[in-house]
């Protein structure tokens, strides 16, 4: 199918982009890997596309003290190959490797994945687990939004009209071990459920854990009951299994053709156990 007629602008600074978005019914175009399919099906029909492609400041990863700053237009492929990401935020690389396929990863961006706020998207849970924050520019200037507050509802980020996601600030987590465990039924498939796990150990016991779940509700959810059960526990299979039993607590998964809500809750428990064990195993190897 062919998208509805639309105007196009390709600003070269964030300020120009914000100005162009003053137009009612304008929409940001990043990699287009979610937006173009929606335009084609005419599920979206903006009057103006504001393409961020020429704003070179929005691309790339840099180190800023104890944080990484990742530009919103950094593609999935660039995130995967970035040495800073692999060193300081391997969880993001682990999850990005499971996103879609090579072609989509060449075009799709981190910022687009987060702004799209798809409950089945893999990266929202990762930024929540890592306690990242979003830098946003709008008509009223710049502001920062914590990842935990960024995802409001299905496909609804906490962006006001005219706001552009500029970058993602991710705390460097040295000494943490991480894993993203995703369950899907076919190649390039979306997660039925995904689990982003980050664990810090101290002398064999788990000192701190951060677990966030993909597709267990309208937004990514922290598995706080699992996190507190893990704190102070030893990293044995029994202890991890006991903690993971609480993974679906407080979640509201939906049921659809691929999985019922009960099945998703079951997956959350099993995948949480796998994610933590894989994270811990990786720490052994290191």
């Amino acid at each position: 199918m062919i998208p509805a007629a639309v105007d196009y602008s390709c600003p070269s600074t964030v300020e120009e982009a914000v100005q162009a978005l003053g137009d009612e019914d304008a929409k940001v175009l990043a990699g287009g890997q979610s937006l173009i399919p929606m335009l084609r099906l005419r599920l979206a029909a903006p009057t103006l596309l504001v393409d961020l492609d020429r704003i070179s400041d929005l691309r790339g990863v840099r180190s800023d003290g104890d944080h990484l700053v990742i530009g919103a237009m950094t593609t999935h492929a660039a995130v995967l190959g970035d040495p800073l990401v692999n060193q300081y935020a391997p969880l993001l690389a682990q999850a990005t490797a499971t996103v879609a396929d090579r072609q989509v990863r060449h075009r799709g961006t981190l910022g687009g994945s987060l702004a799209h706020a798809d409950p089945a998207g893999d990266l929202p849970a990762v930024v929540v687990a890592l306690d990242a924050s979003m830098e946003v520019a709008g008509p009223g200037g710049r502001r920062e939004i914590a990842a935990a507050d960024f995802f409001v509802d299905y496909f609804t980020p906490a962006l006001e009209p005219g706001e552009v996601l500029v970058s993602v600030r991710v705390p460097k987590r040295e000494g943490w071990s991480t894993h993203y465990e995703k369950f899907n039924r076919m190649a390039q498939g979306w997660a039925l459920v995904g689990v982003a796990a980050a664990v810090r150990r101290d002398n064999g016991t788990i000192a701190e854990a951060r677990i966030a779940l993909t597709n267990m509700g309208s937004t990514p959810v922290r598995a706080t009951a699992v996190e507190s059960a893990l704190t102070g526990a030893d990293a044995s299979l029994e202890a991890v299994r006991a903690a993971a039993a609480a993974a679906a607590e407080g979640t509201q998964p939906s049921g659809d053709l691929s999985a019922s809500a009960e099945y998703r809750s079951h997956l959350a428990r099993v995948l949480t156990e796998r994610a933590i064990m894989a994270a811990v195993g990786q720490a052994h190897a290191a």
Partner: peptide, 21 residues
């Protein structure tokens, strides 16, 4: 070709012609 000039595989049904300028 990407912004760095390196050619990569893309799905041409999911790229607007204007994005390929």
């Amino acid at each position: 070709s990407g912004p760095d000039g390196k050619p990569v595989g893309v799905k041409s049904c999911t790229v607007l012609a204007v994005q390929a300028d």
